[in-house]
Amino acid sequence: MSKNSASSCQSKQSGFTLIELMIAVVILAILAAIAMPMYSNYITKAKARSAQSDLVALSVVMESLYQRNLKYVDSAGEQTVSDYFTTNSMTGSWQPSADTFDYKLTVTTTTYSLKAIGKDRNNGCEITLTNTNSRSITGDSACGGLTSW
């Protein structure tokens, strides 16, 4: 008695069906739709935090200048930090950690006000620090949701 090999042997195929593959793609798309805005907000907030630390470092430079001169070196109104340093022959005193903010300052002989103004992804974010350590931040979503520091 011989058995017919074609009828008794069932071939088993392994792999994914099209439906299973489409379900996996849909799940990945949903995860990406949730993760991408959160990641984008995280990057925006990180750049704003970086600007905050740049302002603190710049205030240390300003206080060091005050210690040497017993006054702040006057600026002609609000100007960029690089222009202020160039005008007062202070090369290499301070460099920002990133270029996503423009840094400006206003200095009198007794006070200063430092400002980081966002550009690109942080456009609309403005962070301020004064010589009395008064800190402010405006532009809620442009600063990644930061409201204080």
Rank of each mutant, 00 (worst) to 15 (best):
M1L: 12
K3Q: 14
N4S: 11
N4G: 05
A6K: 12
S7I: 15
S8Q: 14
C9Q: 15
Q10H: 15
K12S: 10
Q13T: 14
S14K: 11
G15T: 03
L21M: 13
L21R: 08
M22D: 10
A24R: 13
A29R: 09
A33D: 04
I34D: 06
I34T: 07
P37V: 00
P37Q: 01
N41G: 11
T44A: 11
T44G: 04
T44Y: 02
K45T: 05
A46H: 12
K47G: 04
A48F: 04
S50Q: 06
D54V: 05
L58K: 03
L58S: 00
M62T: 01
M62R: 05
Q67G: 08
V73E: 12
D74K: 12
A76S: 15
G77R: 04
E78L: 10
E78F: 06
Q79S: 14
Q79E: 15
T80L: 07
V81I: 11
F85E: 08
T87M: 07
S89I: 09
S89F: 11
Q95T: 15
Q95D: 11
Q95W: 05
D99V: 06
T100Q: 10
F101M: 04
K104E: 02
T106C: 03
T106D: 04
T109G: 10
T109F: 03
T111W: 01
Y112A: 01
K115C: 06
K115H: 02
I117P: 00
G118K: 02
K119T: 05
D120T: 02
D120W: 01
I127E: 00
L129C: 06
N131H: 14
I137K: 00
G139Y: 00
A142T: 00
G145T: 00
G145H: 01
G145F: 01
L146G: 01
T147C: 03
T147D: 02
T147V: 04
